[in-house]
Design a binder for these strands. Structure first.
Lengths: 237, 237
DNA sequence: CCGGCCCACGGCACCGAGTGCCGAATGAGG
DNA sequence: CCTCATTCGGCACTCGGTGCCGTGGGCCGG
């Protein structure tokens, strides 16, 4: 039933335009009652994004799972990749939808609210992980926004190319930029560094009562952030 | 006329709620015809944000002006401050509106579309400035998103405190974080390095894996000592 | 096999946002 | 005094969205 409504809706949207298609037209083509449409979709816009609700649930579940000692920025990047996977599963559908949302202001506004919910899910996760940091909520919000922006940048360029090319590679590349500017001081910049630094990147996992602390940082990284990392690593001096 | 409609609308919104107030109620209180409302506001939501259109025009004008040799990140931060100024001009009005948008989903969606237009204006400016860079559009989108996120983080915390306190200081502080991670080295750490900043500000995906700094320290060492070591190692003051 | 229940569907009436159209009032200029 | 133009108000209409209720079909216990 949902699928029948989505199929009928997109058929009409593509041949007649979104605003030129009424809900009555859709239900007439699908052969169901008008009331049933609003049982499956709370609004006309929802029929254009039939799977985002599910994807958002997957993302929040993904962020809620985990042992809690993962690299936070890495984790939200992986969460963003879930959204990409959803788009990549049906390239033609995603491209058609992209063309619709690009030229219908109402759909663009709706998409913004969807993206906003993803961003808030990422920010909420980062806020939980950054409770120890001094500017935790600020950093969480900014990093979440950066991840979403990078993801959308790559996703849109992939959609603009009609779904040709590798979407994964484009998003990986975009997220690498975010990781390199926000990521833990260690892993992203020195993949061949000795052993332990991973423990430093997670403030809560400094349980090694070792004597020495190793910090690996990219030259040019903001000094105050290195200090911040040190504070959590050395034990809140 | 606009002002009368806005005043009548907010009076009813505050005492009765947004969704419980119809346009007919507003025009009845204002003593004008229903048709006139939609002459001045294209939709019911627009009456809640009567000055954003003007502010957006100011921002685009501000970004279009200028000699073109300003620090790009600095410039978009200043542009974001324009929005803050608009909020700070009428604190009570801004706080009332914040409470409305916080609990009315429709208004939140509308606000998102407004914020999106600000963000696109900033991103468009940065894209123009970053045409020479390799990942110009990516960096532009990410930085614009980060600036907006930082601005909104500070703005919202100010609004949540009922407009008490200094909004400027909060936003300056939040934007300083963005500048320190994306901006030229300029103000925050090394004002005396005139040459290099352009190359340093674009750390595109670890293109210099050799450019890392390793610091080894005893756990429990005085923090200032470590920072001293870092400063000499990173080559800044 | 049958009389109950539950639920999904469809139809109907209704509300409110938004639009096109036209007539009326007002005000400036000839 | 007449005319033109702009603005406002009223009317009628479309369409998205909701509450309500009747109906029909499937599923269960008797």
């Amino acid at each position: 039933m949902r699928d029948a409504l989505v199929a009928a809706a997109f058929q009409l949207f593509l041949e007649r335009g979104y605003e030129q298609t009424t809900v009555d037209d859709i239900v007439a083509l699908a052969g169901v009652g008008r009331r049933s449409f609003f049982r499956y979709f709370p609004s006309k816009e929802d029929v254009v994004f039939p799977d985002h609700e599910r994807c958002l649930a997957d993302m929040t579940a993904f962020l809620a799972d985990g042992s809690g000692d993962e690299e936070p920025v890495e984790r939200v990047c992986d969460a963003a990749r879930l959204v990409l996977r959803m788009y990549a599963e049906n390239p033609t559908f995603s491209v058609q939808r992209y063309r619709l949302t690009k030229q219908v202001p109402g759909l663009r506004a709706y998409e913004l609210s969807v993206v906003w919910r993803y961003e808030r899910a990422l920010a909420a996760y980062l806020r939980r992980r950054f409770t120890a940091r001094r500017e935790g909520t600020l950093q969480a919000d900014v990093i979440a926004a950066a991840v979403v922006a990078a993801h959308n940048n790559a996703l849109r360029s992939w959609l603009r190319s009609d779904g040709r090319g590798e979407a994964d590679a484009a998003v990986d590349h975009a997220l690498a930029y975010v990781r390199s500017t926000f990521g833990g001081i260690t892993a992203s910049t020195a993949p061949d560094s000795p052993a332990s630094p991973a423990s430093l990147t997670s403030p809560t996992a400094g349980e090694r009562p070792d004597d020495v602390v190793v910090v690996v940082s990219r030259r040019g990284a903001p000094l105050w952030r290195v200090v911040q990392e040190l504070e959590s690593a050395l034990g809140r001096t």
